[in-house]
């Protein structure tokens, strides 16, 4: 039969669990992400020594130095390359597993 080659597979999947999953944004119920996943930046202000190396590798211009000699992140420009985390000598910057970056609140887009 040259017509309807996918019919058998399609009909069979009627009785099987669908492969798509619902998008749930509640914490704890989200789809698990692998270990190396690069999500929203998390910044430990205490360990930061203000060397500003991260500013020099950031492609998007996310990172700004603040008056206290620390840095602030403008997440809306972040392209999640993870170079800042790589060059940070103290490990103060990490990329968390949080993939929900979109928000209604503009202040949440700045990490200090």
């Amino acid at each position: 039969m040259r017509v309807g080659k996918v019919f058998r597979d399609a009909f069979r999947s009627l009785f099987r669990k669908p492969v798509t999953v619902e998008y749930i944004t509640k914490p704890g119920k989200m789809v698990p992400v692998p270990e190396r996943f690069r999500g929203r930046i998390s910044y430990d202000r205490e360990t930061c020594i203000g060397c500003l190396l991260c500013i020099r590798v950031c492609p998007g211009g996310v990172i700004l130095s603040t008056e206290e000699g620390k840095v602030a992140f403008n997440i809306s420009r972040c392209i999640l390359c993870g170079q800042c985390a790589e060059v940070c000598p103290k490990g103060a910057i990490k990329l968390s597993s949080q993939f929900e970056i979109v928000t209604y609140n503009k202040e949440e887009l700045t990490i200090k």
């Binding site: 999947s13 009627l14 669908p18 492969v19 798509t20 619902e22």
Partner: peptide, 11 residues
């Protein structure tokens, strides 16, 4: 719904 389920979607 049936169309979606045949395509392995929830629908």
């Amino acid at each position: 719904k049936l169309h979606a389920r045949m395509q392995k979607r929830i629908g």
